[in-house]
């Protein structure tokens, strides 16, 4: 185990929609590999990045890789903090109900399933950015 005191806080800053460019998919690949390093990991979804979490994505007819289901498995990788910006949702006519359910099992509370997606406002997002050690932008 990594010592809690030496853990670094990693923030993955996702601002781009999936499929039009590869950034969402390859960002997710970093998150999965990074999980093995047992750092403190948060994902931020701002601007078009919120589209990465849309429910019912199906890229089959577009002939592209269906990777959206990987987000749902993030809980198994101990990645439990997915921050979605409210203003970004609002601007796009979306609510959290349009997003896929992403949950994790809380081992401290009898493995109860809890939501990983947390909707935060812009001011909270600014505080999040200011509270991390390493910001990986995609």
């Amino acid at each position: 185990m990594t010592d809690e005191n030496t853990k670094k806080k990693f923030l993955y800053l996702n601002r781009k929609a999936p499929f039009g460019t590869i950034y969402a998919l390859e960002s997710l690949e970093v998150v999965l590999i990074g999980a093995a390093f047992e750092q403190d990991v948060s994902l931020a979804f701002i601007d078009d990045g919120v589209f990465q979490l849309m429910n019912n994505q199906d890229a089959t007819a577009a002939g592209m890789k269906n990777f959206s289901k990987i987000y749902r498995a993030l809980g198994d990788y101990e990645v439990r903090k997915l921050y979605v910006e409210k203003e970004s949702l609002d601007l796009r006519g979306l609510t959290v109900g349009d997003l896929m359910p992403v949950t994790y099992e809380d081992e401290d509370e009898n493995y109860e399933e809890k939501p990983s997606i947390r909707v935060v406002d812009r001011a909270e997002m600014a505080k999040l950015i200011a509270g991390h050690d390493v910001i990986l932008s995609f």
Partner: peptide, 15 residues
């Protein structure tokens, strides 16, 4: 693109 706007929307004091 909106990168500048988005950046300016997420500044903390002293940034």
């Amino acid at each position: 693109r909106n990168a500048l706007k988005s950046c300016l929307d997420h500044l903390s004091a002293g940034d």
